[in-house]
C-alpha cells in the first residue's frame, strides 16, 4: 500500500481520477434509466435495465473498495476477513431459494408422492 508520504502524494491523482469515474458512472446509470433513447431491452424497466444498473453499481463499488479502501494492495488477513463477510452475505441473499422448498410450488426437495 502507498504508505510513504511520497507514495501518498503520488496516489492523490489516482484518487481524483477514480472520483471522476464514479461521477461519470452515476450519470450513465441515470441516463440509461431515464432517457428513452438509451433504453435497453423492452420499453421501460426490465431484466436488461436491471443487469446494466447492477453491473455499473458493482463496478463503482469495486473501484471504491479497490482504490479508496486500498483493497488492491492489502495484506492477506484482510482478504480472508472480507471474503468471509461476502460469502456469508451472499449466503443471506441465497436464503431466498428456500422459498422454493414450498411443497405446493416446488416438488424437488419434498415429494409427497414418495411418502407412504
Amino acid at each position: 500500500m502507498a504508505d510513504s508520504p511520497e507514495a501518498v502524494k503520488k496516489a492523490q491523482k489516482l484518487y481524483l481520477l477514480i472520483g471522476a469515474i464514479l461521477f461519470v458512472f452515476t450519470v450513465v446509470t441515470l441516463l440509461v434509466a431515464t432517457v428513452p433513447a438509451l433504453d435497453v431491452g423492452r420499453h421501460g424497466f426490465d431484466l436488461a435495465d436491471m443487469t446494466i444498473g447492477l453491473l455499473i453499481a458493482s463496478l463503482k463499488a469495486g473501484l471504491v473498495a479497490a482504490i479508496f479502501m486500498h483493497l488492491s494492495n492489502e495484506k492477506r488477513t484482510i482478504y480472508v476477513l472480507i471474503s468471509l463477510g461476502i460469502v456469508f452475505g451472499l449466503a443471506m441473499i441465497l436464503l431466498i431459494w428456500f422459498a422454493y422448498a414450498d411443497p405446493i410450488e416446488f416438488k424437488g426437495f419434498y415429494d409427497i408422492g414418495n411418502l407412504k
Binding site: I82, G85, G89
Partner: peptide, 9 residues
C-alpha cells in the same frame, strides 16, 4: 465491515 456486509446482505 465484514459483519456489516452480512447485515446489509
Amino acid at each position: 465491515l465484514a459483519s456489516e456486509v452480512m447485515l446489509f446482505g
